[in-house]
Simulated scan of single mutants.
Amino acid sequence: MKQEIEMEFKNLLTQEEFNRLKHFFFIRDDQFVYQENHYFDTPEFSLKGQGAALRIRVKNDTYTLTLKQTIEQGLLETHEALTKEKAQSILNNPAMMEGEMKSLLKDMGIAAEQLQHFGTLATHRAQVPYEGGMLVLDHSCYLQTEDYELEFEVNDWEQGKNSFEKLLASFRIPYRPSANKIKRLYAKKYGVEDQS
């Protein structure tokens, strides 16, 4: 089990803007890594109601269970590495979750038995170092939808915000607030616009 604070800025892109950034930063197609995010919540969306999200990410034959919780600046992420077999058993039956992650959820008033796997979002992701942080280009596919997104992961909120705004301005990319991936999946699946 590992915890870290994630600070990032996000912006939705058009396909043309995505391609411009890709070419400017010399990102080749073979530098994009495929990953799948499998999301969980209760039927009453108890995690969403607490500004939290739970997922299993599959990437390069690794399986990671992650709980994201909103904090003042950014997100607190708790990660647990899983075997392929354990990940599959949780996907088939979230009640199979155990250990510290199960305890963390219980502290939030959520029993593993209440959880269900409600959707998967696949992403092709490339990242390059930029201005003391990490610039991420994402092309995501879910529920017959495709979208493009720019993320900037930083360690310093103010400096990162300044660098991100300058980058958007220099490419004449309008600021388009980007809900996180789980919220975009919710919005598409349930027909609700939740861009908060």
Rank of each mutant, 00 (worst) to 15 (best):
V33C: 12
F26H: 15
T62M: 06
P43Q: 08
H38K: 05
E44D: 14
H38F: 10
Q15E: 14
H23M: 14
T62P: 06
E44H: 09
E36D: 15
F40R: 03
N60P: 05
P43F: 02
S46Q: 15
Y34L: 15
R57Y: 14
T42Q: 08
Y63P: 10
K68A: 06
Y63D: 12
R57N: 08
G51S: 11
V58A: 09
Q35S: 13
L21D: 03
K48D: 02
Q31K: 11
D29N: 14
Q50I: 00
R55L: 03
F32N: 10
Q35V: 09
T70D: 07
K48A: 00
N37V: 06
Y34W: 11
T42A: 06
Q35W: 09
D61V: 06
L21P: 01
T14W: 03
F25W: 11
L12M: 12
F24G: 02
F18A: 07
T66E: 07
H23G: 12
E36K: 15
R28E: 15
R57I: 05
L67Y: 00
D61Y: 10
L54Y: 05
L21E: 04
Q50P: 01
T42F: 05
D30R: 08
L13S: 12
F45K: 03
R57F: 10
F18Y: 08
F18N: 06
Y39Q: 08
F32V: 12
I71Q: 09
F45Y: 05
Q35G: 08
R55S: 04
T14S: 14
K48N: 02
L54G: 07
F24E: 15
L65F: 13
T70G: 11
L12T: 04
F40Q: 03
R20F: 01
E17M: 03
K22V: 06
E36L: 15
V33Y: 11
Y63N: 11
F25G: 10
L21M: 02
Y63W: 13
F18G: 07
K22F: 08
A52S: 13
T14Q: 03
R55D: 02
I71M: 07
H23A: 14
N19K: 05
D30H: 15
R55I: 01
T70I: 04
D41V: 00
L13Y: 11
D30E: 15
D30P: 07
L67S: 00
T14E: 03
V58Y: 10
T64H: 06
Y39H: 08
L67K: 00
N19L: 14
F24P: 04
K48H: 04
P43L: 09
D29G: 14
K59L: 13
R20E: 10
R55G: 02
E72W: 02
H23P: 03
K22T: 08
T70A: 11
T66S: 04
I71V: 11
L47T: 00
D30T: 12
D41A: 02
A52E: 05
S46W: 11
Q50T: 01
S46Y: 09
N37W: 13
L12Q: 07
L12P: 03
L13W: 08
E36N: 13
D41S: 02
K59S: 07
T66K: 02
F18Q: 05
Y63M: 09
